[in-house]
Nucleic acid binder design. Structure first.
Length: 455
RNA sequence: GGCGGCGUGGCCGAGUGGUUUAGGCAAGGGCCUGCAAAGCCCUGUACAGCGGUUCGAUUCCGCUCGCCGCCUCCA
C-alpha cells in the first residue's frame, strides 16, 4: 500500500481509498494565461507518475485537476493585448494540453473549468457569510481567518507568526491582513458574474474547494500541488472547508520546485524556460526520467546537461527493448518462464515508500544490466523474463520504450548493401555505407543478424 | 524577523549507526568487434566545518559556515 509524506501531519502515512474503492486525487492545475514552463512540466509528471503507478498496482484512481480560466493575470494580459480574455484562456489551454500530450501525461478524468462553477462558488461564499465566517466590504467578500480553527496547519505556523511576517498589501477594509478574498467585485469593464454582493468574480482559493468537493466529495483521499501552493492557496482552500464544517482532503502532497542555478523557476523571477521549447530539443521521455531520478519532494535542477544525461539513460531502456525483440524473434518458442526474483515486488516496495522513484529506478537499471548480460549469454529465456519485468516497471512510471521511427526505404537499402559488403569482407565499402547511414541520422549496430539501424 | 528544508565522489542524485554495493551521466582499463556501435566486466576509497553522544557516525545531537523555499501572484 502506498505511503506518502503528508504535509499536514508532517509524517509518512498510508493513503487508503475509502472503502477499498477508488482513490480520489485532486491536483491544482494551471491558470491559463500563458504557455506552460518547466515547473508545470514537473508537477504534471509527478502526479502522472503517481497515478500511473497506482493504476499499474491495481488501484483505481479518480483524478481531477482544474483549469483556472478566470483570474487577474488573464484580465491583465487581455487588456495589454487588447484581446477578449477568452482568447487568452483558449489559446493557453490549447498549449497546455498539447504539451501534456507530448509528455505522455494522461488527461485527468475531469478537468473542471472555474468559469463553469461560478454559481456553486457563489453558493459556498453565501454559506460562509451566513455562518459569520466571511464578510462583505466595498471591494469584495473576505474570509475571516480568525474564525478558522487550526489556520496555519499547512504553513506550519501559527496565525500570529504568519501575521507578523505578512507582506500582503494592507487593504483597509480587511479585518485582518491574513484574511483573503472569496469574491472580487468587478471594476468597470471587467468580466463578471452576478452575485448577492454585486457582479464580480471568484477568488482563486474558492474555486478549488468547490470543484474538488463537487467532483470528488468530502474527505477525498489526496490533494496535491506544487510546494509553493501550500500557503496560502491550500491553506485557504482548507480554511473554507473547515469554516463550513466539511471534511476536506485527508492527505496533502506537495512536489518540489524546478530550479535554475539553484533558484526557483518562477514567472515573478523571470527565469522561466518554456516547456514546449525543451520538448522540442530532447526526447520528452528524458524529462520524465530526469523527474523520476530525483525525489518528488526535492527541488530539481533542469539543464541541458541533465536532460542529455537522462536521455543517455533512456537509450539503455530502448536498446534493451530492441535486443529483447530480436531475441524473442530468434527464439521460436514463446518464452513464458517467470524469473524467481520478483522485480515488480521490489520495485513496488520502493515506490510505496513515499514514491521513492529514484531507488525504484535504480532497481530497474540494475535489472536492465542483468537482462542484457543474460541475453548476451546463454540464458535468453531468463533475460527476456527479467527484461520484461524491467520494462513493465518502467512503464508503471509512464516510461515507455520507444518503438523507434520508421526506417526509410533508402536507409533499408543502404543497410542491405552494407551487409553484402560485409559478407564480401569489403570493409571500405561497408564503412562508407555506415558513414552514409549515420549522416542521414541513423544509428548503426552490427548484430549476428546483420546491420541493425534505428533512429 | 517567523517557519521549513538542503550541503554526498568529475556532474546529477538516493540511502544508511558498523560489515557488501545506490542508480544515471562522464572518465580510465578490459572483453566482444574487420573497425566501430551496442552490451558485459573492472576501477574511483564521497558524505560542508567544528564539537558531542556511541565500542563505532556520512547517518543521532549541538554549534558554525554556505545555499534555498514559504510568509505576496506562482506548479
Amino acid at each position: 500500500m502506498l505511503r506518502l509524506y503528508d504535509t499536514a501531519t508532517r509524517r509518512v502515512a498510508e493513503v487508503v481509498p475509502a472503502g477499498g474503492g477508488v482513490l480520489r486525487l485532486y491536483v491544482c492545475g494551471p491558470t491559463v494565461y500563458g504557455p506552460p514552463h518547466l515547473g508545470h512540466g514537473r508537477f504534471t509528471l509527478v502526479y502522472d507518475v503517481l497515478r500511473r503507478y497506482l493504476e499499474w498496482s491495481g488501484i483505481r484512481v479518480r483524478h481531477v485537476s482544474n483549469v483556472t480560466d478566470i483570474d487577474d493575470k488573464i484580465i491583465t494580459r487581455a487588456n495589454d493585448e487588447g484581446r477578449p480574455w477568452q482568447d487568452i484562456t483558449e489559446e493557453s489551454e490549447a498549449l497546455w494540453w498539447a504539451a501534456m500530450d507530448r509528455m505522455g501525461v494522461a488527461m485527468p478524468n475531469e478537468a473542471p473549468h472555474a468559469t463553469r462553477y461560478v454559481p456553486q462558488m457563489v453558493e459556498l461564499i453565501g454559506e460562509l457569510v451566513s455562518r459569520g465566517a466571511a464578510y462583505d466590504v466595498e471591494d469584495g467578500v473576505y474570509l475571516s481567518v480568525a474564525e478558522v480553527p487550526g489556520y496555519g496547519l499547512l504553513a506550519q505556523q501559527s496565525l500570529d507568526s504568519l501575521r507578523s511576517g505578512a507582506r500582503v498589501d494592507v487593504v483597509a477594509a480587511k479585518r485582518s491582513p491574513m484574511d483573503f478574498v472569496l469574491w472580487k467585485k468587478a471594476k468597470p469593464g471587467e468580466p463578471s458574474w452576478p452575485s448577492p454582493w454585486g457582479p464580480g468574480r471568484p477568488g482563486w482559493h474558492t474555486e478549488c474547494v468547490v470543484m474538488s468537493l463537487a467532483l470528488l466529495g468530502e474527505g477525498f483521499e489526496l490533494h496535491g500541488g506544487g510546494s509553493d501552493l501550500k500557503f496560502p492557496h491550500h491553506e485557504n482552500e482548507r480554511a473554507q472547508a473547515v469554516a463550513l464544517g466539511r471534511a476536506f482532503a485527508a492527505h496533502w502532497m506537495h512536489n518540489g520546485m524546478v530550479e535554475v542555478g539553484g533558484e526557483k523557476m518562477s514567472k515573478s523571477i523571470g527565469n522561466v524556460t518554456d516547456l514546449a521549447t525543451t520538448l522540442d530539443s530532447v526526447d520528452p521521455r528524458a524529462y520524465r526520467l530526469l523527474v523520476l531520478q530525483s525525489h518528488y519532494r526535492a527541488p530539481i535542477e533542469v539543464s541541458t546537461a541533465q536532460l542529455s544525461a537522462a536521455s543517455q539513460g533512456l537509450d539503455r531502456l530502448d536498446s534493451l527493448a530492441r535486443r529483447m525483440d530480436e531475441a524473442a524473434a530468434a527464439t521460436s518458442e514463446a518464452v513464458e518462464s517467470e524469473p524467481a526474483s520478483d522485480l515488480r515486488a521490489a520495485f513496488s516496495e520502493r515506490m510505496d515508500d513515499d514514491l521513492d522513484a529514484p531507488r525504484a529506478m535504480a532497481l530497474v537499471f540494475d535489472a536492465v544490466r542483468s537482462a542484457n548480460a543474460m541475453l548476451a549469454g546463454s540464458d535468453v529465456a531468463g533475460g527476456l523474463a527479467l527484461g520484461r519485468q524491467a520494462l513493465s516497471c518502467a512503464s508503471a512510471t509512464g516510461l515507455l520504450t520507444a518503438s523507434g521511427r520508421a526506417v526509410s526505404e533508402r536507409a533499408a537499402l543502404l543497410a542491405q548493401q552494407r551487409d553484402r559488403a560485409r559478407d564480401a569482407r569489403d570493409w571500405t565499402t561497408a564503412d562508407r555505407l555506415r558513414d552514409e547511414l549515420q549522416a542521414i541520422g541513423y544509428r548503426v549496430e552490427d548484430t549476428p543478424a546483420g546491420t541493425r539501424i534505428y533512429r
